[in-house]
Design a protein around this nucleic acid. Sequence first.
DNA 1: GACAGATGAAGGA
DNA 2: TCCTTCATCTGTC
Length: 168
Amino acid sequence: MKTQFIELSLPTRDGQFIARYSEKGLAEMDFPKVGSARRADRTLRRSVPTNIVSRWHRATEAALKYILAGRAAKNLPPLDLSGGTEFQQAVWRELGKISPGQTRSYGEIAQAIGKPKAVRAVGGACGANPIPVLVPCHRVLAAHGKIGGFGGGLDWKRRLLAREGVSL
DNA sequence: GACAGATGAAGGA
DNA sequence: TCCTTCATCTGTC
């Protein structure tokens, strides 16, 4: 039984993000694909009432624009993190606590979830994060302020951090 | 099981 | 500094 997603586009001044919603909330988000005008921005499934999804989508769009502007999102849509393991969900929840303009190291995240030695695993969980930007994995740096890596590309990470006033 | 990974620390040049 | 090596933990195949 595969989860059915409702896929909607999120046009921003930085490109067109793709958001996918499950019956529980926002489940995935993609960065804009360079040079691809992805067709069919909505593959509606009957499993989720469209009025609920459109409400989530408005919240997602507003939150995304706030974060891209380097500010804290006022209202986040419900996030469906059930696609991850318990460990990954713990990491993602911890990421959600980081305020704009603040950064943490992988080691600090590992400590915060009570597994100070699981630093590499935290990196893995960040890479597996299905909802970049809203789950701010870009605010996690390697030790000593090094940028580390980023699933959506280091350019995005630098850009997002710069908008929040973080200098590397 | 084996292996890889968005780490981190230590040691040597 | 920079590079290499190794310990460590988790997820994936």
